[in-house]
Every structure is written in structure tokens, then in C-alpha cells.
Design a protein around this nucleic acid. Structure first.
Length: 467
RNA sequence: GACCCCAUCGUCUAGUCAGGUCCAGGACACGACCCUUUCAAGGUCGAGACACGGGUUCGAAUCCCGUUGGGGUCACCA
């Protein structure tokens, strides 16, 4: 049997990390088994669903590289099918019409709460004769849920979950306006889409029992369930806007690589021994539901940053140059020239170990694309006193004569110079760094010289050595 | 409140299903040192946890019960 998973968000907001992780698990499981990963929009609640949210979900998945198979299914377009199933259940006597008013139901809940008993619908219309129906009042359709016994869910993550049927009431399948509720539409669509594995947040664990009852009433095969724990914020409470439950596009904008997000999210709540850093291909190869943890995991930005740093180091230089190109042009206020791009490419191996995110990479690369005379920051300026300047003028004379302009040739020349003059390398390197980068920190000084090239280097040294 | 789920370093986790090899391993963060021209990266070392209480057993992080704590669900939302 081919594995079919689905990601079924309701388009009512952003695609945040918790939701993205559920999508990732579905995707990994489907890809691991060579099955299908479907996308369904649960937009039966027309009041809350928006097209902006639909775009956010689609864009978010696309950026994360979670490609789905086939067409996107919109539940709102399947309303007639859902209604058909509700009618069938009614006809088979497995469901009934309920004419309770919202006020009546609220009273019922209130009373139950006061009594301390489970807050459930009491089934008052369950066995009434249809002839008792009030005229001109629209009804909901409720399922006739078993009164006794228990429903057992074999959950791939949570294990065997048993729920007493008396804890489950006759849930509403179809609203008084005739539209299907989530319970009905999810079951019908999962069946019609031939979904074999329902992998979702464990806030749906209780629903699984109700849905299993529905599947059985319809004579359909109950899919395998896997309820994965939710992600919590750093303070241990449910992830909310307060602690960065922002859309995945925010992470994109803040310079995280999609493969880093995938790696981090996959490892949050799922593990394969001590494996921490892996490629998406490895995750696909290794992923299994049985290795998903049962406890909620907290989101940790430091760890994400660290994983991101690793993936930046793994990324190809050309891709990183491409990634920093726009931001760099913006910072410089001009488009980058071919010359800048060449230097950036040469610099990348030295730049990337120093960055945990794209903005940090941009910051570190800034010196490469500055125009002469370059801006010197305060701390760097302090290094360029009169002695340093004369040292730079002297050193410039030595570098001028250098034929081969590569890190090792430059190093040999400079080390020779300091040895001859009996000075520490640091005494030369720091002023040199200040003059070349305008800062007190940068990649190794010999690399900086090589990256900038002979002409640009001597130019910058000359600028700083003046006066 | 009722029901369901969960519980190993600050955080993510390995180990739990098949009790001994675990005075509990790895990673992030933290501290020290090494490397060193700065900052990173890298390397070495350090500190840091089986929630608590009973039981079963020769032996429990692992099995059972209870307590506590955390989370989730109780809509004509999904």
C-alpha cells in the first residue's frame, strides 16, 4: 500500500514553526516511503479563512522546499460531497437532526460545568421522532455516537489511547446552514484522498477517537494516526506571537537557510541517536514516526542559529554570494560591480565561518565592497596613530615590490618584514586591518590582502597612511 | 472541573519497548585552556539531569502504583 500523508492547515493565519514542523513530518514520512504528500486547505470556516493566509502557507511551504503532490484540495469546494455523506448517515439512521438553539446549548454546558460533569451534549434530540421537529427552524446534523464501550486509537507516536465512549458526545457533523464541520469534512476528505497516515499536532488527539467513530460508521478504513507534540516557547507555554510564533517568512527574512530550518525542526522532537546535523536527504532516509518523542519540545533560538551556522558553512560559495548581493547593494547604496562579486567569491571561504545568519554574513562582507577612501570606525581609527601610519607607509613600499599576490606570498613578505625590523606581527597586523577594513576585526590579514587584490590593498593602505 | 497526553543536564535529546555494559552519552548555550595577527572557526577540558514517594527485583533512568508538575481537549473553530 502506498503511503499517503497530508498537510491540512486552516488558512486563518501565518505558517508558523509549529505548523511547519507538522508539514515537515508529513513530508518526510511520505518521501521516506516513496509515497505521496498532499496539501489540503481546511477552509470550511469562510469567516476566518483568508486568501492572504492561503498565500502565506503556499509561499512558506515552497520556501521550505516541502513540495506537495497533485492539486491543492480546498474543502470549501467539496461542500456538496460533505453534505451528501451527512444525508447518507441520516438516511442510515446513524445521524439525526438536532433543533437545539445556541442558547439552549449554552445553558446545557453551563449546567454541566456547575455540576462538575463532562461538558457534553446530552443527546436530547437523539431519539425524538422527526415529527416533533419545530416548524421553520433549521437543524444541525449530529452523529449517533456509541453510548457505551470505548474507542481505542493506536497512535504511532502516543501509543494506545483509550477513550470511554461516554466521554464522547454526539458531535455536530453539519451546521444549521448545511455546511460540514471539521469533523465531517476531515474524515470525508481523508477517505476520498486515500490518506493512509494522519500526522498532525497532538491538540487533535481527542478528535482522533471521534473521527475513528465516524470512519467506522461510514464503513471506511480508519487511517493510521500519529499525533506529534506541539512546540512550546522558551518559557514552556504554547508557542504564541509573544515568543516568535511568527511566520516562516520571518526566518527567511532574518537570514536562515531553509535546510537549516528543516534540520532544526526535524531534530526538535525527533531523533536518530546522536545525529544533530544532517542534510535533508539524510532526514528523508532516516525519518520514522517511531522515533518521534511524546513530550512537547521548546523552541530554542540559539540552537537554531547554531544549526544555521553549520548549513551556511556547508552551502556553496556562489549561492551565498547570491544571497548577500541584494542586502549588500542596499547597504552600499549602489549596485555591485563585477569586481565586487569576484572579491566576494574569493572572500567567502573566510567569511562564512564567521556568520550564523545571512545578515551577519553581509556585515562581515561589507569591507570587501567599500569604495575608497573607506570609512574607518572609531576603534579602528584609534589604531591608526602617527607611528602606525609611518609603519604602514614603510610596509607599503615592501608590498609594492611583491610579484605574487597570494596569501602565502604575502605572509612570507610580511613575516620577513617584521623579523627584520624586530617588531611583533600584531603591531603591523592591527593597523593594517584598520586601514584595509576600517574595523578591528576581520578575517586573517593575509587573506584580506589577497581578497582585495594588490591595487585596492595598496590604495587603502595609502589612504590610511596619509597625514 | 472532566477527560486525554507527557515527565533525563538551563534547552534539544541518547538510553526506556526486550531491567545489569549508565556513579547516565551527545548537541546548543555557559566557563577555562590550546591554536593565534583581530574576530570567528577548530581542538581539549569543566560545570550541569534520571521530578518526588512507594513497590516489584539479586539489581530500576528503564517495569507497576501514587503524588506533584506541565501540556492538550471539552464550539453550529479547525
Amino acid at each position: 500500500m502506498t503511503v499517503v500523508t497530508r498537510f491540512a492547515p486552516s488558512p486563518t493565519g501565518l505558517l508558523h514553526l509549529g505548523t511547519a514542523r507538522v508539514a515537515l513530518f508529513n513530508w518526510l514520512y511520505a518521501r521516506h516511503h516513496g509515497g505521496k504528500f498532499l496539501l489540503r486547505l481546511e477552509d470550511t470556516d469562510r469567516k476566518r479563512s483568508t486568501e492572504e493566509a492561503v498565500s502565506a502557507i503556499i509561499d512558506g511551504l515552497a520556501w521550505l522546499g516541502l513540495d506537495w503532490d497533485g492539486e491543492i484540495v480546498r474543502q470549501s469546494e467539496r461542500m456538496e460531497r460533505h453534505a451528501e455523506i451527512a444525508r447518507r448517515l441520516l438516511k442510515e439512521g446513524k445521524a439525526y437532526r438536532c433543533y437545539c438553539t445556541p442558547e439552549e446549548l449554552a445553558e446545557m454546558r453551563e449546567a454541566a460545568r456547575e455540576r462538575g460533569s463532562p461538558v457534553l451534549y446530552d443527546g436530547r434530540w437523539r431519539d425524538r421522532d422527526p415529527s416533533e421537529a419545530p416548524v421553520g427552524v433549521s437543524s444541525t446534523i449530529r452523529i449517533k455516537s456509541p453510548l457505551a464501550g470505548e474507542t481505542v486509537i493506536k497512535d504511532r507516536v502516543q501509543g494506545t489511547v483509550t477513550v470511554a465512549n461516554r466521554q464522547l458526545d454526539d458531535m455536530v457533523l453539519s451546521r444549521s446552514d448545511g455546511t460540514a464541520t471539521y469533523m465531517l469534512s476531515a474524515v470525508v476528505d481523508d477517505h476520498d484522498m486515500r490518506v493512509t497516515h494522519v500526522i498532525r499536532g497532538d491538540d487533535h488527539l481527542n478528535n482522533a477517537a471521534r473521527q475513528a467513530i465516524l470512519f467506522q460508521a461510514l464503513g471506511w478504513t480508519v487511517p493510521e494516526f500519529a499525533h506529534v507534540p506541539l512546540i512550546h516557547g522558551a518559557d514552556g507555554t504554547k508557542l504564541s506571537k509573544r515568543h516568535g510564533a511568527v511566520g516562516v517568512e520571518t526566518y527567511r527574512d532574518e537570514g536562515y537557510l531553509p535546510e537549516a530550518i528543516r534540520n532544526y525542526l526535524a531534530r526538535l522532537g525527533w531523533s536518530r541517536g546522536d545525529e544533530e546535523l544532517f542534510t535533508t536527504e539524510q532526514a528523508v532516509e532516516w525519518f520514522d514516526l517511531d522515533r518521534v518523542g511524546r513530550g512537547a519540545a521548546r523552541f530554542d533560538l540559539d540552537k537554531l542559529r547554531s544549526v544555521n551556522a553549520h548549513h551556511i558553512q556547508q552551502a556553496r560559495d556562489s549561492r551565498l554570494v547570491e544571497a548577500i548581493r541584494g542586502p549588500l547593494a542596499e547597504r552600499r547604496g549602489r549596485a555591485l560591480k563585477d569586481r565586487d562579486l569576484e572579491r566576494l567569491t574569493a572572500a567567502m571561504p573566510e567569511l562564512k565561518p564567521r556568520a550564523k545568519s545571512i545578515p551577519e554574513l553581509v556585515e562581515g562582507a561589507l569591507f570587501v565592497v567599500r569604495d575608497r577612501p573607506i570609512e574607518i570606525d572609531e576603534k579602528a581609527a584609534e589604531l591608526l596613530d602617527a607611528d602606525a601610519k609611518s609603519l604602514l607607509r614603510d610596509l607599503a613600499g615592501v608590498l609594492e615590490t611583491l610579484g605574487d599576490w597570494n596569501p602565502s606570498a604575502i605572509e612570507t613578505a610580511i613575516r620577513g618584514y617584521v623579523a627584520e625590523n624586530g617588531i611583533r606581527l600584531g603591531a603591523v597586523a592591527q593597523p593594517l586591518r584598520a586601514s584595509l577594513t576600517g574595523r578591528t576585526t576581520s578575517p586573517g590579514i593575509f587573506d584580506v590582502l589577497a581578497i582585495l587584490g594588490k591595487g585596492e590593498s595598496l590604495g587603502r593602505i595609502g589612504d590610511a597612511g596619509e597625514g
